[in-house]
Computed example of a mutant assay.
Amino acid sequence: MNPAARAELDQLRLALRSASLGTAGGFRPPQDPLTSWFGRGVGLPHETLPEFEGSAMFPLLQIRVSELPFVPEQLRDVALLVLFQNLSRHPFDLPHGEGWLIREYASVDGLVALPGVAHPCRPFPIRWTRVDDDAPGWEGAWEIVGLTAVNGGEAASDAFFDDFSRHIGTKVGGYPYEIQHGAGLHDFVFQVGSEEKVGWMWGDNGVGYFYRSSDGQWRWECQFY
């Protein structure tokens, strides 16, 4: 490997990010509804399940922020959030509130379990694990460091793909896991993977990415194989 390519990879190592990785189940479900869950959610006493095209949506993911070993800056003032999805189709290209919705709560005080609705997921509590080695994919890495020398050498190119960790599952923080192309690094907060144990899939083993701008606006994207 030539020195220029090695230097580029060393620069990339300095840009690795921390993240909280989510694992479904594997321990006794807690009685407290105010924890992190796949397939269950809470809300204020007056809140009902959000609707899309006349049908109730369901809570796909609930994140209790205090349980995260790593918390991204966008969630510093959030105590709990719930991601809702509709039951009919993936809401590709739809804005926040249409077919998908994230509710944020600055405190967990007064939150109660939402009424149940039939949905395709098997509810599981989530255990979070911290990693400090999450790396961007090929296109995302170019937003951080030029990889001209890496691109020009087989050993360096192999090192880019083999020597860095890129976490595909559900995670908060880190980098969006690229499947088809760059997913965009700006404002990225968390991703939801295709969770076989839960019974949830984005297309063919895809990933849903969720972004929050500095003014609190959410958007999402999705890639799959």
Results as ranks from 00 to 15, higher is better:
residue 179 I to G: 00
residue 203 G to E: 01
residue 81 L to H: 02
residue 205 N to D: 07
residue 219 R to I: 11
residue 187 D to F: 01
residue 206 G to F: 09
residue 1 M to G: 08
residue 146 G to I: 06
residue 106 A to R: 15
residue 152 G to T: 08
residue 204 D to N: 14
residue 159 A to T: 10
residue 48 T to E: 14
residue 121 C to P: 05
residue 89 R to I: 01
residue 65 V to G: 08
residue 117 V to H: 07
residue 31 Q to M: 08
residue 109 D to M: 06
residue 24 A to C: 06
residue 11 Q to A: 14
residue 37 W to D: 07
residue 84 F to R: 00
residue 73 E to G: 05
residue 180 Q to R: 13
residue 19 A to Q: 10
residue 48 T to S: 09
residue 220 W to R: 09
residue 6 R to T: 10
residue 204 D to G: 00
residue 142 W to H: 07
residue 203 G to T: 04
residue 140 G to V: 12
residue 25 G to A: 06
residue 218 W to I: 13
residue 196 E to Q: 08
residue 31 Q to P: 07
residue 65 V to S: 14
residue 195 E to G: 05
residue 181 H to G: 13
residue 114 L to N: 02
residue 92 F to I: 02
residue 156 A to D: 13
residue 211 Y to H: 07
residue 99 G to R: 15
residue 193 G to A: 11
residue 33 P to V: 10
residue 24 A to L: 11
residue 27 F to P: 11
residue 82 V to G: 02
residue 122 R to H: 11
residue 216 G to Y: 03
residue 151 N to T: 08
residue 42 V to K: 04
residue 85 Q to L: 15
residue 225 Y to S: 09
residue 208 G to P: 02
residue 103 R to Y: 01
residue 134 D to I: 04
residue 111 L to T: 07
residue 136 P to V: 12
residue 139 E to K: 12
residue 199 G to L: 03
residue 3 P to G: 02
residue 104 E to C: 13
